[in-house]
């Protein structure tokens, strides 16, 4: 079935032993937007992202990304992933980490690596070992590793944990610019003001999509003042 959706998932089920992490989930994400996944701890956000990336396979259901059935090796080089954990080599420098991931994606060039490090404002520490950086700095490097090959689709699992407010705003400005360039972003977050900046939101609860829409739509539907309140109302239904 032809579709102009960037991501289309149908009837996704993922079980880990007796735990059902994703429980019959349908999802559609249009290209060039930022889609926010909200939900309490253990609601299945990370699992969903890993399924969309093809890192793990669903027990049931199917996923299509940019018209290709997941998992697909061609897709992998067009997707960027910032896992919830830092996923960096602590004994290597910032430049070495970013270069390594660039090489893996067959997109290595020294200027590009340098540019990406500048983008996350880490140029002054480019030669430092990651183990010597602060928590927020490590996050920035982790983002750089996900961006360096200029992916068409970006999956960010809580990208701004430990990042200071100023830099967090810069991150989101950059995400917006990427959207304008046609990059589709899926981002997991617990931060409500970040959720406000997403084009669309999906509220996850126990592996299911409780509600979906823009921040304004969700607030209106729940009759709530804030997104937080809306989310609490949806979950208690």
């Amino acid at each position: 079935m032809p579709t102009d959706l960037a991501i289309q998932a149908k009837g996704l089920v993922k079980r880990f032993g007796s735990v059902v992490a994703v429980n019959g989930l349908d999802l559609g994400v249009e290209p060039g937007i930022t889609y926010g996944l909200l939900g309490p701890n253990g609601s299945g956000k990370t699992t969903l992202v890993r399924l969309l990336l093809g890192v793990i396979l669903p027990n049931e259901g199917s996923i299509t990304v940019m018209g290709r059935r997941v998992p697909d090796r061609v897709l992998r080089s067009q997707m960027g992933y910032m896992p919830q954990s830092l996923a960096l080599y602590e004994d290597l420098t910032v430049t070495e980490n970013v270069s390594f991931y660039a090489r893996l994606m067959d997109a290595y060039s020294p200027p590009r690596v340098e540019e990406t490090i500048q983008l996350v404002d880490m140029a002054s520490r480019a030669r430092s070992a990651v183990s010597t950086l602060s928590g927020g700095m490590k996050r920035r490097v982790s983002l750089a590793c996900a961006l360096v090959h200029r992916p068409v689709m970006l999956f960010l699992d809580e990208p701004t944990v430990g990042v200071d407010p100023q830099l967090r705003a810069q991150f989101w400005d950059h995400f917006q610019r990427l959207n304008q360039q046609g990059v589709t972003i899926v981002v997991c977050t617990h931060v409500m003001d970040e959720a406000e900046r997403c084009t669309r939101l999906g509220l996850l609860h126990q592996g299911r999509l409780l509600a979906e829409g823009t921040a304004r739509e969700l607030r209106a539907r729940a009759g709530a003042e804030t997104l937080e309140e809306a989310f609490l109302r949806f979950s208690s239904q």
Partner: peptide, 14 residues
């Protein structure tokens, strides 16, 4: 443990 395998898994690496 550091989650880098997760990134490798999401890359085109075989």
């Amino acid at each position: 443990a550091y989650g880098t395998l997760e990134r490798l898994a999401a890359s085109p690496l075989t």
